[in-house]
């Protein structure tokens, strides 16, 4: 006996363990995904392939098929979804933030924005956005940053760094720190002033979401940690709700597909690559 729990024998310990299986948490994956209590409006539950609420300071990761639509939702207005995406087939092809800003001639992420790789292709597209408060300049927090700001950065501590969580998420797909490029983040905005100063914009409020469509098979890494420039001295981050469902990749009938000559050629390159691979 340990307190009120009988775990003195294997059978008793097994019974004790099994009695926990129906417990619920505010942050947990929901399996099968179709049983999610938070199915997005208009989505057939049977099409869901991922339903999860990521804890504050937590991370998640998954390999998703081409055409998967991924919704990230900031339930409380305090989430900050740091995201990295990789070509699941050749993961050295991965998010390239410089090309993602430069090629669309636009520094701020929003609806229709492609997330480009360094190979001249689209990994994913932002297809819906009710927040418009995002950032592609500051990346995620390093251990050094969080130690200075909060006194600790360890994944098991009260103020994990985004890089520490990306490191863990990545290694579960065979990725090492060399495979981690600069990331983007959603739900806490930053704007560049005339002199280059990075101005904190912060949240758009609770209940906003961003939808990404996977334009090829992707490894998706998500770390839910405060934005590095969050002015609060405390480590404050809300739960991040994640849903994904089977949908369709971008095609010529989508407005963003031909929104600019650069983007159109990016989708052409992507399709060219996938068709040659038989996908």
């Amino acid at each position: 006996m340990v307190g009120a729990r009988d775990t003195a024998s294997v059978l008793a310990a097994r019974a004790d363990a099994r009695a926990q299986g129906s417990n619920v948490s505010d942050w947990m994956p929901c399996l099968p995904a179709a049983t999610s209590p938070f199915v997005p409006d208009g989505v057939d539950p049977s099409a869901l392939v991922w339903a999860e609420t990521v804890a504050p300071g937590g991370y998640t990761h998954k390999v998703v098929a081409r055409g998967t639509r991924l919704r990230l939702e900031d339930v409380t207005g305090d989430a900050c979804a740091h995201v990295l995406v990789f070509n699941a087939l050749e993961p050295w092809e991965r998010l390239n933030v410089a090309d993602t800003q430069k090629i669309p001639w636009q520094a701020y992420l929003g609806a229709g924005h492609p997330l480009l790789s360094g190979e001249g292709r689209v990994l994913a597209t932002v297809v819906a956005d009710t927040s418009a408060h995002h950032d592609a300049f500051c990346g995620t927090s390093s251990d050094e940053w969080n130690v200075v700001k909060y006194g600790d950065a360890a994944p098991q501590g009260p103020s994990p760094s985004g890089r520490a969580l990306f490191t863990l998420a990545g290694v579960k797909h065979g990725l090492t720190p060399r495979d981690l490029p600069p990331s983007v983040s959603f739900f806490q905005g930053v704007r560049v002033e005339d002199d280059g100063a990075l101005a904190w914009q912060g949240t758009a409020g609770p209940g906003t979401y961003v939808d990404l469509v996977a334009e090829m098979p992707l490894i998706v890494l998500v770390a839910n940690v405060p934005h590095p420039l969050d002015p609060r001295t405390d480590y404050v981050v809300g739960p991040l709700r994640v849903h994904a469902w089977r949908s369709t990749p971008s095609g010529p009938s989508d407005e963003h597909h031909g929104a600019s000559p650069e983007r159109e050629r990016a989708y052409l390159n992507t399709t060219d690559y996938l068709e040659a691979r038989g996908l």
Binding site: F137, P177, L198
Partner: peptide, 25 residues
């Protein structure tokens, strides 16, 4: 690391005094 460099100095441009940082900060 571009983002670490920019975050630590709070500015998007590189000038005299900018510390060029690694991904470890």
């Amino acid at each position: 690391s571009v983002p670490d460099t920019l975050t630590w100095q709070g500015n998007a441009y590189v000038r005299e005094g900018t510390v060029l940082r690694s991904g470890l900060g």
